[in-house]
Design a protein around this nucleic acid. Structure first.
Length: 172
DNA sequence: TTAGTGATATCC
DNA sequence: GATATCACTAAA
């Protein structure tokens, strides 16, 4: 059983938090007391209004408001009408940045992760800090990380689409 | 490769 | 009010 990750961890630049989050364990306690645990195997960083791949690139709206808010908060977004994608807000307040959780160690795919962890839109805006329902743990694992270009954002243009802000645990 | 799906943003 | 878009997945 690991240590719960605290506010300081998330209150750093997303480019530090995103790779650090790889290998950490997401814990979700269900109302009936069951704990779902999954080690994070892959993340992506989204950072700033100039990042054309970031939702906040179009400015501050009701939807992206959370990205500008406190670190340690969960941003859940419904994609293509059926997939929940989970992000963790990082960095300073008023600085739009967040980490997209792309995969756990037992499955690949952002929507699979939320499905398996039973996370949906009702988690949007919740905090990972001091919560009895959902939090991250550090069990001391320090996986090797490799980087790669982000996926699914072809619309963002050559520069932003090729930048290596995807962080993957190197298996074996 | 394509269909399916619905919230959000943007345009009348 | 209407339409276009989208950080995806599964099936073929």
């Amino acid at each position: 059983m690991g240590r719960r990750i605290d506010a300081e961890f998330f209150h750093r630049d997303v480019l530090e938090v995103a790779p650090d989050l790889v290998g950490k364990i997401l814990v979700h306690r269900l109302p009936d007391g069951t704990e779902l645990r999954e080690r994070i195997a892959e993340t992506e960083a989204y950072r700033g209004e100039e990042d054309k791949g970031c939702h906040a690139s179009k400015g501050r709206t009701k939807r992206t408001e959370l990205l500008y808010g406190r670190s340690g908060v969960i941003y859940v977004y419904l994609c293509y009408g059926m997939h929940w994608l989970m992000n963790v807000i990082t960095g300073e307040t008023d600085q739009p940045q967040g980490v997209l959780l792309r995969a756990g160690e037992n499955f690949g795919g952002p929507a699979k992760l939320t499905k398996k962890m039973k996370i949906d839109g009702s988690f949007n805006g919740r905090s990972l800090l001091g919560s009895e329902e959902i939090w991250f743990e550090d069990d001391g694992a320090r996986p090797r990380i490799r980087t790669a270009p982000r996926v699914g954002i072809d619309y963002a243009g050559e520069v932003w689409k090729n930048i290596e802000w995807r962080f993957i645990a190197d298996g074996e």
